[in-house]
Every structure is written in C-alpha cells, then in structure tokens.
Write a protein that binds this DNA or RNA. Structure first.
Length: 444
RNA sequence: GCAGCAGUAGCUCAGUUGGUUAGAGCACUAGUUUGUGGAACUAGGGGUCGGUGGUUCGAAUCCACCCUGCUGUACCA
C-alpha cells in the first residue's frame, strides 16, 4: 500500500507568471492583428529572434557569479552563460551587427515576442510578458522618431482608444544634457539620481520629487531614498525649466515640426520623461494612458506607461566598429490588454460550438453526419464529448456558452426531423435535416 | 531589495482569555425529473487551517523563520 505519502507537485505558479484565459487572449489577438496591419502599412519587415541569447550579447556582462540574476533569467550551457531576453531591442542590435552587410539601410523591422524579467511583479506587470517592438536602424533622420510616435498612436486608436485616452510624451537626452551643463552638474552620480527623480514626478508630484533632488525622501512605507544633494538654486533652475515646458533641444523641435506635417497632435513635450539611463542618446518617448485602471480588487492603481522608446545611436556599435544610429519603440501588449479590458466592453465573437447530444452511442453515424454537415458550412459544432445523461449534456452546453443544442433521439429519427433547442431563449424547433444549417445561422 | 497588510474547501469568507471529530454561502457530484441547462428541494464529496520548527497536557489561534499574494517604495536594459 502507498503508505508513504508522496509529496504532490505544487499547483501554484512561479512568482510573476500567470495563466491567461480566452477572453484576454482574444483581445490580445485583436491588438496583435491591428499592430500587424499598421506595421505592414508603414513598410516594416517582420522579424523573429530566439528567446535565448548569450548573456553578454544582450548587454549583461556577468560578474563571476553562480547565478547572474540581475533582472534576467540565466543559466550556464556548457561554459557559456545564456539568458532569456529581457527586451527585443538588444537582440535586434545583435541581429543587425550579425547581418550588417546583407540588410537594407535603413532597416525597418517589427517584432512581437515574449520577454522575461527577473524582478518583482506588480499590478499588470509580470515576469513574462508579450512585447511589441518597432525600430528604424541605420538612420539619423528624425522623421523615423516622429513616425514611430505616429504609428503607435494609430495602433492605439485602432484598438479602440480615443485621443483623450492616451498621450505620447516626448523629450530628449539632449535636453537634460544641456540642463546639466547649465547647472554645472558633472558628477555622474548626481546626474543619475536627478534623472531618476525627474522620472518620478508623474507619480510623486513635484514637491516629493524635489526632495530627491535635495537631501532625500522618506516614503509612506518609511523607506528612505538618498537624494542628489543639489543646491537650492540648482533645484530652482530645474523647476523653472520643467515648468516652462519649453522644448529647447533641437531634436525635439525638429520632431514637433515633423508631427505637424503628419497632422499629429496627440503629443506633449515633457522633460520629466527619462526612460532607462543606459542607452538612450537622443529623443525619448513614452506612451501614457489617461484613464484610471483598477486591479482585481477594484482598487485604482498607479498604472504607469504602457510603452516607450527612443534613439539609441550607440547600441549597435557595441558589437563592432559599426556606425549605426537607431531608434525604436516598444509596447507591453499584456499591459495594454489589461487596461483595454477595463476601458472597453469588448464584444468578443468567441463562437462556442453547437452541441449535438448523444442519446444512443449506436447512432454515432447519424450524429457524425449532422456534425459533418454543420462543419461543412463552417458552423462551430461538436458531438457531446463526454459521457452522461441528457441532463449532464445540457449542463455542459450551458456552461460552455453554446448557443443551441441538437437533439436527435429515437423520436426524431422516426419522424426524420431534428429538434433544435435554443439555449438562450429555451425555445425548441423541429426542423428538417435539410433546413438545419439555415435555422442555426439565424441564431448566430 | 526595503516596508505595511494578508494567507482557513475550487471561490468569497466566518472561526481569540489556546479546549472534543474546523464552519457557512457559492461552486461541484448524485437524486427528486429512466429525453432537456440557466429556478427549487434533498443528500453527498471535498481541508496536511500557506510551510517548517518551537511554546503547551492541548495550536487555525501564541512565538520564530521561510514561502506566496496585495499595496507602496527602490532598481528597471
């Protein structure tokens, strides 16, 4: 006897990973089909790169540690470290460097794929998520940057958002570089802390973020964050620069000019847009939603941006002596879907099958005949796949959301007619076999 | 990573001076209805009380550590 109680495997999922159900997947499919349509229209190539890359190829140079988990999932294969990609931009840079001579310049490609981040998940943020990424590689032309913003907004509107629902914010590294020069701030440490603080203005408000420019800030949980320790007058100048909202870096001015030619107006210059510190070199963009998003408990949450990007003129050259400027934008598809599900009441056409009830297993031939007829007319249908009484079959059909059930038992076979029960109204119709598909089409 | 709160059935939760065999609603299964779902009634199944260790005659309840979730915060290519 099995007296030694075996330890059962856990039915829980690893931290930050989720099962996704049909409703979400159908909306995701809808979003993806909109993306593909727009990308084809804008002339981008479709590309796919693998999930794993050599760790150093995607910008992680690992210290000699057993487990390189600085935000990425990694393992050692033979003697080389591999990592799951954490975005689609770094693999693109690797791809371009590898295929530099063959690809057209400029190179426009888009990609859809899962990325993985080994970090703390939050509302609508997981450790595995689907990302969309579009890039222009090999051009300094700022029309590329402008067009990325235009294209992203076309995608969002195709997905059902209004102009008031989202804003594309733009700024530039050049703007902050200039600012630091004026302020005479040269310490890399101070610059980093200041940039991070600016990035937080949206969330914390100016007054709180200001503390991070000075001594530091204690948050609600009691945690203390060290500040940039800037002088009063320096902070004042930053405040003025932010409040003026004057785009005085040439690249942003140029992009805004291009926006006008596209009649694109749903942008906002916002110097508090910072993005990652590592590789952006010029214009940066961020897409923000303007409506409230709730978590599973109905509470409003800080949702943050659903995507962003910018110019990274040095990334490709990391792989060699290639002078290859580039610019790109990404969207977190799952986060967009999470928000969309709350914003719009999607009428998803998930056609559930008509269920043909089984009265008598010996009559399977007749059932398959009906089934074949329905499927030939492209009507989603199935013979009840389980075993059990009619009641159980009805309960099944009800549960899966089937629009109707076909009853074909002894009585029907005798009279040569099929009973069609509409599960929404509860009405039953006796129909001739030849009329069945037409009757069913009326229900859909 | 740091901090606050939480974890009892598939789900939502009740259950304190620590005391027999741990409860409810919904869901599930079977029946009332041998060919009829979404209502009702009856019966039934289902829990290592997040985990491990400790205190105690006795722990869902007290203590320690850990895991997981939520919220904020830090980092985020």
């Amino acid at each position: 006897m099995a007296k030694d109680k075996k330890k059962k495997p856990s039915k829980e999922l690893p931290l930050g990973f989720v099962d996704r159900q049909e409703k979400e997947l159908l909306i995701r499919d809808f979003v993806i089909s909109n993306i593909k349509e727009v990308m084809i229209k804008y002339g981008f190539q479709y590309l796919e790169t693998p999930s794993f890359e050599y760790t150093d190829s995607i910008g992680k140079f690992l210290p000699d540690k057993d487990r390189p988990d600085q935000g990425v999932f990694s393992f050692k294969d033979e003697n080389k470290w591999l990592s799951l990609r954490y975005d689609l931009t770094a693999p693109l840079a690797r791809y371009v460097a590898k295929n530099y001579l063959e690809i057209p310049k400029p190179f426009k490609r888009y990609q859809l794929g899962s990325v993985w981040r080994n970090e703390k998940p939050g509302p609508g943020r997981f450790r595995e998520f689907l990302q969309f990424d579009a890039d222009y590689v090999g051009t300094k032309n700022l029309q590329a940057d402008a067009e990325l913003c235009v294209l992203i907004s076309e995608i969002l509107e195709k997905c059902g958002l209004d102009k008031t629902d989202y804003t594309v914010k733009i700024s530039s590294r050049k703007f902050t570089d200039k600012l630091f020069k004026e302020l005479n701030v040269t310490s890399q440490d101070q610059i980093s802390i200041t940039l991070r603080a600016l990035d937080k203005i949206d969330r914390l408000g100016w007054e709180e973020a200001k503390k991070l420019l000075g001594e530091g800030r204690k948050d609600n949980s009691g945690d203390y964050t060290k500040g940039a320790k800037l002088k009063e007058e320096q902070i004042k100048k930053i405040e003025d620069a932010l409040k003026n909202k004057l785009a005085n870096s040439e690249d942003v001015i140029e992009i805004i000019k291009i926006f006008k030619t596209y009649n694109f107006e749903n942008y906002k210059f916002d110097p508090s847009v910072i993005r990652g510190l590592e590789y952006y070199t010029g214009p940066i963009f961020e897409v923000n939603l303007n409506f409230e998003v709730r978590n599973s408990k109905g509470k409003n949450i800080q949702f943050g941006s659903i995507g962003g990007g910018g110019r990274y003129d040095n990334l490709v050259s990391n792989f060699g002596n290639l002078d290859c400027p580039a610019t790109g934008i990404s969207i977190g598809i799952d986060r967009l879907v999470f928000a969309l599900m709350q914003k719009k009441d999607f009428k998803i056409k998930n056609k559930r099958p008509i269920v043909i009830c089984v009265f008598d297993k010996d009559k399977i031939k007749e059932y398959v005949q009906i089934l074949t007829t329905l499927r030939a007319s492209n009507i989603s249908s199935e013979i009840y796949p389980g075993e059990g009484k009619l009641k159980k079959q009805m309960e099944y059909a009800n549960k899966i959301g089937s629009p109707a059930v076909i009853l074909y038992g002894e009585d029907e076979i005798k009279s040569g007619k099929i009973t069609l029960r509409n599960l929404v109204t509860g009405n039953e119709n006796s129909v001739k076999i030849n009329d069945l598909t037409n009757e069913i089409k009326k229900i859909f």
